[in-house]
Simulated assay, not measured.
Amino acid sequence: MARKWILSLALSLAAGLAQADTTAAENDGFTRPLDQLQFNPYLDQREFERSTLDALQVYDPWESWNRRVYHFNYRFDEWVFLPVVRGYRYVTPGFVRSGVNNFFSNLGDIPNLLNSLLQFKGQRSLETTGRLLINTTIGIAGLWDPATRMGLPKHSEDFGQTLGVYGVPDGPYVVLPFLGPSNLRDTGGKVFDFAAESQVNYLNVAEVSSDHPEITALRVVDIRDSTNFRYGQTNSPFEYEKVRFVYREARKIQVAE
């Protein structure tokens, strides 16, 4: 009788611990991702297999290190970045946040223009030049964006795209600390774009920022505030592979534009 009672108690404790572990894991957003999975009955099996293989064949020789950096970025975003962004939204009125975003977006048109010229994209170069002139003058140093209302769309061109246009391969996939997904070619492109913007020193912002790091900090917070991606939002244990695949395909499209 005592043995049965002890066995029953042990089983009850084990079940309780298992349930607690499952609840804790579910709060992290990475368990039971297949519960809501629905298959399209009209999906071609060969196409499904081909797309799955494509996702797995991203060149990622540093995957072990990249996954560590990805996890670091996930936790930093959860514990530091997003709380700062929420505080920024709480204390800053919407129209002020919009003005800050427009201002830094206007600065970003400098590397956009340089790379449009390097890629011999005449129309985009003219449109970006027009945006710079209009937003810097009528828009008061870029705090407003009248150029978009006047029919001049915002373009995004970087030196990684420029290298891709000239046939430079993307190279190994890389996850950069804080910055997220990239590849070897685009990482070098980021360095070039940063150096170009600093050398041009448009509106004297680069020089002033060297003495006032809070301007750079504000720009970083603004970028995170305007970026919709959230780690764990896919509720999938394969999020790393998904982000890697989407990044590669998105860059292919951008280079081909």
Rank of each mutant, 00 (worst) to 15 (best):
E127N: 06
T128F: 04
T129F: 12
T129A: 15
T129I: 08
T129E: 02
T129G: 14
G130V: 10
G130H: 08
G130E: 09
R131W: 01
R131H: 05
R131Q: 11
L132R: 07
L132M: 13
L132S: 03
L132F: 08
L133I: 15
L133F: 15
I134M: 09
I134C: 04
N135M: 12
N135I: 13
N135H: 10
N135F: 10
N135Q: 11
N135C: 12
T136L: 10
T136G: 13
T137H: 08
I138M: 14
I138N: 02
I138A: 15
G139I: 09
G139K: 02
G139C: 09
I140R: 05
I140H: 04
I140S: 06
A141K: 02
A141C: 04
A141I: 15
A141S: 12
G142M: 11
G142L: 12
L143N: 12
W144P: 01
W144G: 09
W144F: 15
D145S: 13
D145R: 14
D145W: 04
D145Q: 14
P146F: 09
P146E: 05
P146K: 07
P146A: 11
P146V: 11
A147P: 11
A147R: 13
T148D: 12
R149K: 14
R149Y: 12
R149L: 08
R149E: 11
R149F: 10
M150C: 08
M150N: 07
M150H: 05
M150Y: 10
M150F: 12
M150I: 03
M150E: 08
L152Q: 06
L152H: 05
L152S: 06
L152D: 06
P153I: 03
P153Y: 03
P153V: 05
K154A: 09
K154E: 14
H155P: 02
H155A: 07
H155R: 11
S156R: 15
S156T: 15
S156W: 10
S156C: 07
S156I: 13
E157F: 01
E157G: 06
E157M: 00
E157I: 03
E157T: 01
E157N: 04
D158C: 06
D158V: 02
D158F: 02
F159I: 00
F159R: 03
F159N: 09
F159K: 04
G160N: 02
G160W: 00
G160H: 01
Q161I: 02
Q161H: 00
Q161A: 01
Q161L: 01
T162F: 01
T162L: 02
L163S: 05
L163I: 10
L163C: 10
G164T: 03
G164P: 00
G164C: 02
G164M: 02
G164W: 00
